[in-house]
């Protein structure tokens, strides 16, 4: 498939090409969605090694299941569902270690004071640790909504639940996080950052 045309082709068209035997179409799908799927996996496991392995596993499973993909569905929803299942399966088997504190955050920006950057990193670590302690459905719902900005109806399809259940799970997740984080919660609208 020519590179210039490939950008304009919808995911679902690429799936059709892939099922017809065009392997390069799947390469394009991987290129388009690899960052999102990796980040999704990272949110679940909290370290690069497991996240990259899970993301790879999600794409391999997606490739195998492509012939079963229903063209009426949205490819990203379908792919996210596979990735979420891969992550939940992994978490049910083992709880991966989260990344060491020093590796978690990117380096402070030039304008950011060192103490503010350290504080920001510390908060991020606490938030991740708290998210990791949420029940699986709440955790998945929070990740998909807060970090991937997916609408509730799409999250409901991914999680195999109703839209109301997805919305309620999101609220429960935030409520539980508030309890887990306690005083560490900072109102970022009022913070000096």
């Amino acid at each position: 498939m020519p590179q210039t045309d490939a950008q304009a082709v919808a995911d679902e068209e690429l799936v059709g090409a892939c099922v017809a035997g065009d392997r390069s179409a799947f390469d394009l799908l991987v290129g388009r969605h690899q960052r999102q799927i990796y980040k999704l996996c990272f949110r679940f496991v909290g370290n690069h090694e497991d996240a990259s392995e899970l993301a790879q596993d999600a794409f391999v499973r997606a490739y195998r299941a492509l012939p079963k993909f229903e063209r009426t569905a949205k490819f990203t929803t379908w792919l996210h569902r596979i990735a979420v299942n891969v992550c939940l399966n992994r978490l049910s088997v083992k709880r991966p270690p989260h990344e060491p504190f020093a590796d978690v955050e990117s380096a402070p920006s030039r304008d950011e004071r060192a103490d503010v950057a350290v504080l920001r990193q510390e908060r991020a670590v606490w938030v991740r640790a708290a998210v990791a302690r949420l029940p699986q459905k709440q955790r998945a719902t929070l990740i998909l909504r807060a970090y991937h900005d997916l609408p509730h109806d799409e999250i409901a399809r991914i999680m195999g639940s109703s839209v109301s259940a997805a919305k309620a799970n999101f609220c429960h997740a935030l409520g539980n996080l508030k309890k887990l984080l306690g005083e560490r919660v900072v109102d970022h609208h009022e913070s000096p950052e």
């Binding site: 392997r23 390469d27 991987v30 290129g31 690899q34 960052r35 990796y38 980040k39 990272f42 949110r43 690069h48 990259s52 993301a55 790879q56 794409f59 391999v60 490739y63 590796d103 978690v104 955050e105 990117s106 920001r120 908060r123 991020a124 938030v127 991740r128 998210v131 929070l142 807060a146 970090y147 935030l174 996080l177 508030k178 984080l181 560490r184 919660v185 900072v186 109102d187 970022h188 609208h189």
Partner: peptide
């Protein structure tokens, strides 16, 4: 407030080399 804290915990981006090799690893 909790939601704002959650949103302020970004994922560190892997190196560009990782993405270059990721597709090959999947294949």
């Amino acid at each position: 407030t909790v939601l704002a804290s959650v949103l302020h915990a970004p994922v560190a981006e892997p190196s560009p080399l990782f993405w270059e090799h990721f597709g090959a690893r999947v294949n």
